[in-house]
Computed example of a mutant assay.
Amino acid sequence: MHENLIAPCGMNCGVCIHYLFMQHDINKQGFRRKYCPGCIPRGEHCTHMGHYCELMAEGKVRFCFECKEFPCKRLKALDRRYRGKYHMSMIENLKYLRFHGIEAFLEKETEKWRCKACGGVVCCHNGLCLECQIDTLHRNKKYRWNREENE
């Protein structure tokens, strides 16, 4: 994982379905998903928060934790949704980044999202490794985390 794949809101774009689909060019296998190289590489400040936050929209902060209102109401709502659906917390990510730095965060994220079967990257949006579990996605294009595996 790379520093440029960590969005200002704390999203790790390297585990996002749109980034992973682009990395593996999955649309060639019959899928139709928007590809995305990540917020920072595509020149956006943050897909989730950039249009709500003036500081972020203008590129005045690199991460939300640099703001005196951290965590703001919108970030809390986004965090709640991602914790419930996608097994990740932007606020926890940002707190870790603030106290431990980007290198330690990248190491932690690499380990957290590593596929135990093949060493690839597990997608935060569906819990699948697109290197060794793509057949599951072929069978069910709207596949989400298997609750039984994660309880």
Rank of each mutant, 00 (worst) to 15 (best):
R74D: 02
H48P: 02
H18I: 05
H51R: 11
K73A: 05
R83I: 13
D25C: 10
L55K: 15
H24I: 02
E3L: 06
G10S: 08
W113H: 07
V121W: 09
Y143M: 09
C67D: 08
C67Y: 06
R32A: 10
F31L: 05
R62E: 10
R62H: 03
E148Q: 15
L106P: 04
A104K: 12
I17M: 11
T136E: 14
N146P: 10
I6E: 00
K85N: 10
R147A: 14
K76W: 03
L130M: 10
I91R: 05
Q133D: 11
T110M: 09
Y96A: 00
N27W: 00
P71V: 05
I40A: 03
E44D: 15
L78P: 00
H18E: 15
W145H: 14
D135P: 01
T136W: 08
C36W: 14
A77V: 07
L55W: 06
W145Q: 04
K112E: 15
K76F: 01
A57E: 12
F21K: 07
L137P: 07
M90P: 03
N126V: 06
L94I: 06
K60D: 08
E149V: 10
G30I: 05
C115L: 08
V15Y: 02
I26A: 05
R83D: 02
N12G: 03
F70A: 09
E149G: 02
C46F: 03
P8Y: 06
G50R: 05
C72M: 13
G120N: 05
K85Y: 10
E92N: 14
Q133R: 10
C46A: 06
R42W: 09
C9N: 01
G43R: 13
E92C: 11
N150D: 07
A7K: 03
G14T: 01
C64L: 07
K95G: 00
K95T: 09
R32V: 10
H2A: 13
K28L: 09
L20D: 04
F63T: 01
V121G: 03
G59D: 09
Y96I: 05
N150L: 13
H48A: 10
V121R: 15
L75D: 03
K112N: 11
A117S: 13
E107S: 00
G120W: 10
F99G: 08
R98Y: 03
R42Q: 14
V122I: 13
K112W: 09
H18K: 14
E149M: 11
P41C: 10
E3I: 04
E92G: 12
C115Q: 03
K60Y: 00
K95S: 03
K85W: 05
D135Q: 11
E131Y: 14
Q29P: 02
A117Y: 08
I134C: 00
G120C: 02
G101D: 02
L94C: 01
P71A: 06
N12T: 04
E107N: 06
E58M: 05
C132Y: 10
